[in-house]
Design a binder for these strands. Structure first.
Lengths: 152, 152
DNA sequence: AAATGATACGTGTATATACACGTGTCCATA
DNA sequence: TATGGACACGTGTATATACACGTATCATTT
């Protein structure tokens, strides 16, 4: 069997496959969350601010392994929608975000749809396989240096 | 152990984890391919057109499990860069793309970096785990209906 | 030949994502 | 006290992604 050849087929790119998986699973969650008006990305931000807030942009970026500048604009959407708000902080540099009452209600509305999808996937794909993704993400984040490794 | 509680922690969303993995692995591949001037997404399109072309937009979309309209603009970039070109087709509706000589050279330049990354990840993450991603993607694509399931 | 369903395409709009860059503030130390 | 590094932020720019819509062409069936 020409395994060597297989490994070079265009369909064998690990990165492309993870991206394919991400697109597909995003579609599943977005459709499930549709009644709440939230995308899964927004649900994720909101849920984390709810659970761990108040949080500033940089802290949330670390929490979500997202680029900070990505969050600047994503958070703007949540703020415009009145789901989070900007609490005044002693340090004038930072913007501390907390969830609003409307945000809490929206999360509460979305939660059952999210849970249902989590359960559905657990059954259809297996908890083990799904747990592996979490580990994989962490390992990959470790491998993706990106952060200008310290000189010493 | 309150497993039930864990499953509700904000960090336990399968979708968010897959997306985290996708971001991280994309960074790894994009950095590796940087000398070629290609992003991994572009490399993927180009490689597939090279291997299976001529292809029209819809066919490539199916091949990559990508929305067709996404490709319209992504392909425009490759075309502007002179990496692919638009072959005239008997059917005036479709645009058949083929790789150009410049495109072939670019792929050839990028390939070693891609292969090196594939190998590196195989070693550090394990071929089995990586193969699982491909399966996972396929299963998820099956679960994500999206395609207005046929009435009968 | 006319009608119709399927096929192929592109655009408007919105979100997600990251990088390069520049600004302001805090704090520790010279 | 002055200053330089660390920290927090936002914007410009570019790419990736999808959905809703509308248009043109093909092919098949009246």
């Amino acid at each position: 069997m020409p395994r060597q050849k297989d490994a070079q087929k265009p369909g064998a790119c690990f990165c492309v496959n993870v991206r394919r998986a991400a697109r597909a699973i995003t579609k599943i969650y977005d459709q499930a969350l549709e009644p709440s008006g939230l995308k899964v990305t927004q649900y994720s931000m909101l849920k984390n601010i709810d659970a761990y807030g108040p949080l500033n942009t940089s802290a949330l970026a670390k929490l979500l392994s997202l680029d900070r500048t990505t969050l600047v604009r994503n958070l703007k959407l949540l703020e415009s929608a009145g789901l989070i708000e900007n609490r005044t902080s002693p340090d004038p540099r930072e913007r501390q975000f907390i969830i609003t009452e409307h945000g809490r209600q929206t999360v509460a509305h979305a939660m059952p749809f999210w849970k249902h999808t989590q359960r559905r996937l657990s059954q259809q794909i297996g908890t083990d396989n799904l747990a592996l993704i979490g580990h994989l993400a962490s390992v990959l984040e470790g491998l993706a240096t990106g952060q200008d490794e310290p000189i010493a």
